[in-house]
């Protein structure tokens, strides 16, 4: 009995979060952006792959004409079809995270600007539940969007015969979207956390963006010595890190916070671009990071004073 009583306000909060996301057009905008990005990367992947196959045929003809007898088999045969999605890693790593930040940020700032925070906090549901409702609502929205991306990518591989995927590859693709969810959930929670914690709206938006820059650019650069643009090239992502003591010691110190590199490594694994065994510790790390960010938002709301809004 008591559980249904607790569940009811949570359900209300989640439903409200989803409804506002839909009403202010955020949801449709995000769905549009993510679906187009998925289609676009399939298009790039497919056109590059088919051109490369055609180039192989042309190369074979050229080499045969030149009298070469031993011609290497198509090197593309060793590359999984899933690799056509390689661009999605970068798009999720970068813009996916930014969009997740915006959702999390808006979630609380919207309530604050419309002046309903004191109304909500004076209800019997309690502050942690209020944040839990927001986090669950945002997660549900992200899951729906990622599921749509999965459907779009799965459908496009079914429609284009050249991009045939095996059952195992479909599962891998699903796993790729699952780890993408963990990564995005971390940034959404971060957006919410700073939204609650900082009363200055501009700084509240900027702070998680700065964390994003650190995670995606600064930490990887310090631990590999790669320039920012080469860190964003999906083709060379599986790069060997730079040598030198500075970089190896930086790598050791910074690795607990390198969520961007963790996500990239997992994504490369699931899209079968980089070989090697799956590191479950990395998945656990992403999961813990999202949970900690969510819990921190609850803590920040406990400390939150509604009178600050009236002064600001």
């Amino acid at each position: 009995m008591s559980s249904s009583r607790i569940a009811s306000p949570l359900r209300t909060l989640i439903a409200h979060e989803l409804r506002t996301l839909r009403r202010e057009g955020t949801f449709s905008t995000l769905l549009g952006i993510f679906s187009s990005v998925t289609l676009f990367s399939v298009f790039i992947g497919w056109s590059t792959r088919s051109t490369t196959i055609a180039i192989y045929a042309a190369t074979v003809t050229t080499l045969k004409a030149a009298g070469v007898s031993h011609i290497a088999p198509n090197p593309l045969l060793g590359v999984s079809t899933l690799s056509i999605f390689n661009n999605l890693i970068i798009y999720t790593l970068l813009v996916g995270a930014l969009l997740a930040i915006v959702i999390g940020h808006r979630s609380f700032v919207r309530d604050r600007k419309s002046g309903v925070v004191p109304l909500l906090l004076s209800r019997p549901a309690g502050r942690p539940l209020y944040i839990a409702g927001k986090l669950c609502g945002i997660s549900a929205a992200l899951l729906f969007i990622l599921f749509s991306m999965f459907v779009v990518s799965a459908l496009s591989t079914l429609l284009i015969p050249a991009l045939h995927l095996s059952g195992g590859e479909f599962l891998s693709l699903a796993a790729f979207y699952t780890v993408s969810f963990l990564y995005l959930a971390f940034f959404a929670a971060l957006g919410l956390l700073f939204g609650v914690y900082m009363s200055n709206e501009s700084l509240a938006l900027l702070a998680p963006v700065l964390v994003w820059i650190a995670v995606v650019f600064i930490l990887p650069e310090l631990s590999t010595g790669q320039n920012p643009v080469s860190l964003l090239n999906p083709v060379t992502l599986a790069h060997v890190p730079s040598s030198g003591t500075f970089f190896s010691s930086a790598r050791a110190i910074l690795s607990p916070f390198s969520f961007g590199q963790d996500y990239t490594a997992l994504a490369l694994h699931f899209l079968r671009i980089s070989p090697g065994a799956l590191d479950f510790g990395t998945i656990l790390k992403l999961l813990v990071a999202s949970t900690v960010a969510g819990a921190a938002s609850m803590f920040a709301l406990q400390k939150y004073s509604t009178t600050a809004d009236q002064i600001a």
């Binding site: 955020t26 990005v37 969009l99 915006v102």
Partner: peptide, 11 residues
């Protein structure tokens, strides 16, 4: 809608 503008700018 402000958030829509920001999302589209990022896109």
């Amino acid at each position: 809608d402000l958030p829509r503008a920001l999302l589209l700018s990022f896109a």
